[in-house]
Computed example of a mutant assay.
Amino acid sequence: MSLPLPGALLFDMDGTLIDSDAWWFAAESTVFGRLGFSWTPAESTEWIGASLLECCEYVTA
């Protein structure tokens, strides 16, 4: 039996299906910490929606 492919996929990157912000903030803090940078909850909130490039430029400035 072959099932039809879905017409679309939804990737939940902004809390559409679940509130994943706490997990995302924890991941940011962990990654930046391992790279030697401090990343506060306030910065996580301030940078919501920014591009990865913009965020990295901010951290390395």
Results as ranks from 00 to 15, higher is better:
S51G: 09
S44V: 01
Y58L: 11
E43K: 08
F11E: 05
G36L: 03
F37T: 01
L9S: 07
C56F: 11
W39A: 08
A26T: 03
E28H: 15
E28P: 02
T30F: 15
L17E: 06
A50T: 15
V31W: 15
P4C: 02
P4S: 03
A61W: 02
T40I: 01
L10S: 06
C55T: 13
W24Y: 12
D12F: 12
D14T: 06
F32S: 02
A22N: 05
T60R: 14
D21A: 03
G15C: 05
G36T: 04
T16E: 04
A61F: 03
A50Y: 10
Y58H: 10
S20Y: 06
W23P: 00
I18V: 15
D19C: 01
G7Q: 04
P6S: 12
E57V: 09
F37R: 03
G15Y: 06
F11H: 13
M13R: 12
F11A: 07
T40C: 02
T30N: 07
A27R: 14
P4Y: 04
I48G: 00
A22H: 04
Y58A: 11
C55W: 00
P4E: 02
A27N: 13
E46N: 10
F11N: 13
D14P: 10
G33I: 00
S2K: 15
L53R: 14
F25P: 00
G33K: 01
G33P: 03
A8C: 13
A8P: 05
S29L: 00
A22W: 06
G36P: 06
S20T: 07
A42P: 00
C55F: 01
G15V: 08
S29G: 02
Y58T: 10
T40G: 01
L52S: 13
L5I: 02
T16F: 11
F11I: 11
V31I: 15
W23T: 02
A26P: 01
T45I: 06
C55Q: 10
L53G: 08
L3M: 09
E57T: 07
A26R: 05
W47E: 02
T16G: 08
R34I: 04
E28L: 14
P41D: 08
